[in-house]
């Protein structure tokens, strides 16, 4: 039975959760989940800088928002963390190890992203095939949660991926990401295509499952005002650089919301945050 929790209350204010510990800096984790040191990524034979000098640490159990305009470097950062690419310079470590071609780290990281043609090869698969795949490939896969979410999002079990509309495809991505229950889960604007009701359902389910099974979740989004209640901390990127990385309490001082701080920093307004 899934407990009904007050999912409208910001997670960082709920005592006893890892997110709250992260928000106040008292989580006591020793090995960060993610550690980037002067990370750089260049595309097109070095002509385009996707990331420049990114250095940050994300502690275990954080529910971290990754914010930035289009082209800011959010997806590039996530793809490096997930081991899909190698950095041009600097280093990235996940649970203390290089994630590139690492059979110990790969099963512990789920990267769920939105690009439609990434799944061209699986258009013939049905929902049940992909749930089967999750059960085979993911050590922490929760089949009960996957079936619960299928019913919640009203997603048919026998529907082929190629026949799904945008909302169903987004729901399937969310379900796979949540049911994988990996120690590190990366959601890259995964809910695009969902309406507001579905997004609320997704965030409620994410919070419920996160409280029951704490883990590190990185969540990139443009819907900042809608999603900021999730985050214990946030990273703000712009033009491949980190503008700010702090717990949400520090980023939302002086009466500002996280969105206000994000817009102000990105537009280079005179924004102060922190205590």
């Amino acid at each position: 039975m899934r407990a009904a929790l007050d999912n409208d209350r910001p997670l960082s204010t709920v005592p006893g959760t890892p997110a709250a510990a992260c928000a106040t800096g008292t989580n006591g984790s020793t090995v960060p989940t993610i550690e980037c040191d002067d990370l750089c990524l260049r595309y097109f034979r070095g002509r385009s800088n996707a990331l420049t000098g990114v250095s940050l640490k994300i502690p275990q159990g954080a529910l971290c928002g990754l914010l930035g305009r289009n082209g800011a470097g959010k997806t590039s950062l996530m793809s490096l963390v997930a081991g899909l690419r190698r950095p041009s310079a600097g280093s990235v470590r996940v649970f203390g190890e290089d994630p590139w071609e690492n059979p110990r780290i790969a099963p512990q990281v789920a990267f769920v992203y939105q690009r439609s043609d990434a799944h061209a090869a699986i258009n013939g698969f049905k929902t049940c095939d992909l749930l089967d795949k999750g059960a085979h490939f993911r050590p922490q896969w929760d089949a009960d949660l996957a079936l619960h979410l299928l019913k919640r999002f009203d997603l048919p079990l026998k529907k082929a991926v190629g026949e799904m509309n945008a909302e169903q495809a987004a729901a399937l991505r969310c379900i796979i990401g949540l049911a994988s229950r990996t120690p590190l889960t990366l959601f890259d604007e995964v809910y695009l295509g969902m309406d507001a009701v579905s997004r609320k359902m997704f965030t409620d389910e994410l919070l419920t499952d996160y409280r029951a099974h704490p883990r590190t979740i990185i969540f990139s989004t443009h819907y900042i005002s809608e999603m900021e209640r999730l985050f214990s901390e946030a990273i703000i990127l712009d033009v491949g650089k980190v503008l700010a990385h702090d717990n949400t309490g520090a980023l939302c001082t002086h009466g500002k919301t996280l969105q206000d701080t994000f817009i102000g920093l990105t537009l280079k307004e005179d924004v102060t945050y922190g205590n």
Partner: peptide, 12 residues
């Protein structure tokens, strides 16, 4: 079968 799909499911 696609490489990207398998990578997103935790294979190297």
């Amino acid at each position: 079968i696609g490489l990207e799909s398998d990578l997103s499911f935790g294979l190297t």
